[in-house]
């Protein structure tokens, strides 16, 4: 949550987008609440996008996620950054983020909790 807060603080005009499973988003909000009780404030500026939305709306996202490295390759050098690339493309297609405005995109709750 520190990276999201820092991004919002230094880029108040930019969208802060978190893509994750719906259940994980609820867990994230609980973690924020237990950390400093500022759950409502954070919820107001973090744009949450359920992963199911992307799975449904973006064939490219489905394709990339069904392939390595997410399924079978376990090389630790594979980074979720490549997932963020595919997610960003899907978010552009859906009109969630826009080319003329900066966006901070985070995928998954584990990274967001840090």
């Amino acid at each position: 949550m520190y990276s999201l807060r820092q991004a919002h603080c230094t880029n108040p005009q930019s969208q802060i987008v978190l893509v994750a499973e719906e259940k994980a988003w609820q867990e994230f909000l609980l973690a924020v609440a237990s950390d400093d009780g500022d759950e409502a404030a954070m919820e107001s500026w973090v744009h949450f996008v359920p992963l199911d939305t992307l799975r449904t709306a973006s064939s490219k996202h489905r394709m990339l996620n069904s392939l390595s490295p997410f399924r079978k390759r376990s090389n630790r050098l594979w980074h979720t950054a490549v997932e963020r690339l595919a997610v960003s493309l899907a978010l552009f297609d859906l009109g969630v983020i826009h080319y003329e405005v900066g966006a901070y995109v985070q995928c998954g709750i584990t990274a967001a909790l840090g």
């Binding site: 490219k60 990339l64 980074h79 950054a81 490549v82 963020r84 690339l85 595919a86 960003s88 493309l89 552009f92 080319y99």
Partner: peptide
């Protein structure tokens, strides 16, 4: 990909 600057949609689509 820690920081990426996407200026044109087609360029990102080509890479993906």
């Amino acid at each position: 990909l820690a920081v990426a600057w996407v200026q044109r949609p087609a360029a990102l689509g080509r890479l993906v």
